[in-house]
């Protein structure tokens, strides 16, 4: 073990890292952000449906549809990501044209993340005080208005903090994309650390990943707290 990390190797690793990291960092960044975005485009409406569609909800849907929705989400969430990446290769080819490369890794990430996001959104909306929804109903608000003007804006702080959880999780998954030909920091870590036993490069990559998680989490938490108008009242007591 002692000769895995020597000063020379560290120096060589640092040079390789400096060479490869900027592009990889950018790749990881846009893959993560785009995947999170598309996963939200699909997951947010589904999460809303999970809450409003149930019996006694704002917009009750047929029971079979709700069961189907729940079943699909549970199924997708229970497939390990490494296997899911392989399973969706035909879909990736259909959408991107190829199953290899950085852009192609967005497809499996979205497929893996949207059911997760649907559950997070569901949780955020369920935390909302049902009284406000009833009040909106008592004012004659339509289901669509209740969703867009009450449920989503009122749970915005919670949605943002859940989006932060989602983006950091997707960042972790995106590194796994390196295993099947995706680009980014994961690719560097796997090809140098796992395939060539170049530990210094792998460690440096991991440090960058950690810094990215910390950055996303800090921004997300700050945003969620500062946008939450319920915190305004607390400032008076200082």
């Amino acid at each position: 073990m002692s000769n895995l990390i020597t000063l020379e190797k560290l120096k060589a690793g640092w040079e390789i890292f400096l060479d490869e990291a900027p592009l990889a960092l950018w790749e990881t960044f846009y893959v993560t952000v785009l995947s999170t975005f598309f996963a939200f485009v699909i997951g947010l409406p589904l999460g809303v449906l999970l809450v409003v569609g149930e019996k006694g909800g704002v917009l009750p849907l047929p029971k079979w549809l709700m069961q189907l929705l729940n079943w699909i989400i549970n199924l997708l969430r229970s497939i390990p990501f490494l296997i899911l990446m392989i399973l969706v290769i035909p879909l990736t080819r259909a959408i991107v044209g190829t199953s290899v490369g950085t852009v192609a890794s967005i497809v499996p990430l979205v497929v893996a993340a949207f059911p997760f996001i649907a559950r997070l959104v569901e949780g955020s909306l369920r935390d909302l005080n049902s009284g406000v929804v009833e009040a909106a109903q008592s004012m004659g608000a339509s289901p669509m208005k209740i969703i867009c003007k009450v449920m989503l804006p009122e749970s915005l702080p919670s949605l943002i903090s859940n989006a932060t959880i989602a983006i950091t999780t997707i960042l972790g998954y995106s590194a796994m994309g390196g295993a099947i030909g995706g680009g980014g920091l994961g690719k560097i870590a796997i090809s140098y650390g796992y395939q060539r036993y170049n530990y210094p490069v792998m460690l440096l990559t991991v440090i960058v990943l950690i810094l990215m998680v910390v950055l996303f989490q800090t921004i997300g938490t700050k945003l969620s707290v500062s946008l939450d108008k319920r915190n305004r009242g607390k400032q008076r007591h200082h």
Binding site: N129, G131, V132, A135, S138, M139, G140, P153, K229, R230
Partner: peptide, 25 residues
């Protein structure tokens, strides 16, 4: 439900727990 919406502008309600939208002024 749809026909009731205009009626609910004529019969409004206040609650024990106020039920204001917390994220709106």
């Amino acid at each position: 439900e749809k026909e009731l919406r205009p009626i609910r502008k004529e019969v409004t309600m206040i609650f024990q727990d106020f039920r204001l939208l917390q994220q709106r002024n």
